[in-house]
Simulated assay, not measured.
Amino acid sequence: MRRLGISIYPEHSTPDKDKQYIKLAHSYGFERIFTCLLSVSKPYEIVMEEYKNIISYAKELHMEVILDVAPAVFDKFDISYDDLCFFAEMGADGVRLDLGFDGLKEAKMTYNPFGLKIELNMSNDVDYLLNILTHQGNKNQIIGCHNFYPQKFTGLPYDFFIACSKRFKEHGIRTAAFVTSRTGDIGPWSINDGLCTLEQHRELSIDVQAKHLWATDLIDDVIIGNAYASEKELRMLGALQRDMIELKVELHSDASPIEQKVVLDELHLRRGDISEYMVRSVEVRKKYANEDFAVRESIPQRKGAVFIGNDSFGKYKGELQVILRDMPLDERKNAVAHVVKEELFLLDYIKPWGTFRLIK
């Protein structure tokens, strides 16, 4: 099951604000929390008390909490790799290793008696995971999560992201990546140009970022990297369909009621023997075979435009098509809507026999 997550930074906020945010996110269906020990500067006792307090509250709402750590954190608090009781006492569900060790240490950690998950950094295209598995790490206790990148133009390029993610998915490891809020100004460091994994996401709407990560079929959990996301953003993510592609469309003013119904009320299935020019949803033409689709003045077929076969199109009347490549005008089709510009690139992720929905 795909999940949504938020991030909190107790070092740079207050318990009350964090708890309010956690409660709000939970109300919109968020199920996990990322929090960071990399930037903490307070003494052991204070850190333990603060994090224990906030994690305890999150656990009351049945939210999973993962702590981001690195060798410096182990050194600062004199934590042994063979004894993770420090993190268990805090109440965490797992620790994310921002920097790796030698493979053997990570493998040993996966057998910790507290049942803590060991989350590995996914943002390196090397055989890090395989090294740990070669040392007989417990795969049932391993999960993966990409980095986020607070500085503009330092996020991962898409092809590299795909290669890194495949290394984990091929072994059946649960994966996660970060999206960025447009309102969040809190992160682990003073620089915060947004906290996303993919550089191409930095200026996109938060829901489009999440749709894209899920559309790759390589990411299970989508986490907002910065705090605090707005309630509108939390609501948008909470309302997303997590298991299929949903594309936002703008309806044409002259689209008839029956055309609007075909566009918005149906679950669409791309025909399996695909065309490079269009996504064809053919099942709807059978359902609406007896309806009238009056011929209207048509327009050239441009990428992202949504057409429905009109009454002059014979057996293809009622078929819905989403255009992938520009084509000449075809008077047998009525233009009824178009995919919003920001989501055009998501058309590439509708696979043969892929189910998708169009939403207003």
Results as ranks from 00 to 15, higher is better:
5 G>W: 07
16 D>S: 08
18 D>S: 11
25 A>S: 04
34 F>I: 01
36 C>L: 03
43 P>G: 06
45 E>F: 03
48 M>H: 12
50 E>F: 02
54 I>A: 04
54 I>R: 12
56 S>R: 15
58 A>G: 12
61 L>H: 10
68 D>E: 12
71 P>M: 00
74 F>Q: 06
82 D>H: 13
85 C>I: 15
86 F>P: 00
87 F>K: 08
96 R>C: 00
98 D>F: 01
99 L>P: 00
101 F>W: 10
112 N>A: 02
113 P>N: 12
117 K>W: 07
122 M>G: 00
124 N>E: 15
128 Y>V: 01
133 L>K: 10
137 G>M: 08
140 N>F: 13
141 Q>F: 09
142 I>E: 03
142 I>K: 01
143 I>W: 07
148 F>A: 07
153 F>G: 06
157 P>I: 14
158 Y>S: 02
159 D>N: 15
163 A>K: 11
166 K>L: 06
167 R>S: 05
168 F>W: 03
172 G>K: 15
181 S>F: 05
181 S>A: 10
183 T>S: 14
184 G>V: 05
184 G>D: 09
186 I>F: 07
187 G>H: 15
189 W>T: 01
191 I>C: 09
192 N>S: 10
192 N>Y: 12
194 G>M: 14
196 C>E: 11
196 C>Y: 11
197 T>D: 11
205 S>Y: 08
207 D>F: 07
208 V>F: 05
209 Q>N: 04
216 T>E: 02
225 G>I: 06
226 N>A: 06
229 A>R: 08
242 R>V: 02
243 D>A: 11
250 E>P: 02
251 L>K: 05
251 L>M: 14
256 S>W: 06
257 P>L: 13
259 E>D: 08
262 V>F: 01
264 L>F: 08
265 D>H: 07
266 E>V: 04
270 R>S: 01
271 R>H: 07
273 D>A: 14
274 I>C: 03
274 I>S: 05
278 M>N: 06
279 V>T: 01
282 V>F: 14
285 R>P: 00
285 R>D: 05
289 A>I: 14
297 E>Y: 08
300 P>V: 06
302 R>H: 11
304 G>K: 09
306 V>M: 03
308 I>N: 12
316 Y>G: 04
322 V>C: 10
326 D>A: 12
328 P>N: 09
335 A>M: 12
336 V>M: 13
336 V>L: 11
340 V>M: 10
343 E>D: 12
350 I>M: 11
356 F>H: 07
360 K>E: 13
